[in-house]
Amino acid sequence: MADFKFDIVEHLGVISENPKGWTKELNLVSWNGARPKFDLRDWAPNHEKMGKGITLSNEEFEALKDLMSKL
């Protein structure tokens, strides 16, 4: 797998934490120097490892917010 870089530009919040200390977080993340996107995934303490997650553009995030407001 190719190397990649990430930078958590802004930590928006923790949604949950499991007994091992991993947290499910919403952050603004820049992947490989690109424009930051909304990112929801599990992170190990100190962000040294990450789990699978989803990354959303501003438009996708707004669409998700609209859908959730209708629930």
Rank of each mutant, 00 (worst) to 15 (best):
W31D: 00
G53F: 05
E60K: 03
W22M: 03
E60H: 10
K65Y: 04
D39E: 03
L71V: 14
W22R: 15
G53I: 05
G33D: 12
T23D: 05
L64Q: 03
S30L: 03
K24D: 07
E59N: 07
M1D: 13
K70Y: 14
V29E: 01
K65R: 13
F38K: 08
I8A: 01
L26Q: 05
M68R: 14
D3F: 14
G21T: 10
F61T: 07
N18K: 04
F6I: 11
W22E: 08
L71A: 13
R41L: 11
N27P: 01
S30C: 04
K49A: 14
D39Y: 02
L56R: 00
G21H: 09
E62V: 05
E59Y: 01
G13Y: 09
N46W: 02
K37P: 01
L71I: 15
D39G: 06
H47L: 04
D42C: 11
E62L: 06
D7S: 07
H11N: 06
K65D: 08
W22H: 05
N18G: 06
F38D: 00
E62K: 15
A63D: 15
E48A: 07
E59V: 09
V9L: 10
A34H: 07
F6L: 13
V29R: 07
F61C: 06
V14Q: 07
D42S: 14
A34F: 07
M1S: 11
L40R: 12
V9M: 05
G21K: 11
G21V: 04
K5R: 13
N32A: 14
G33A: 12
K65L: 14
T55F: 03
P19M: 01
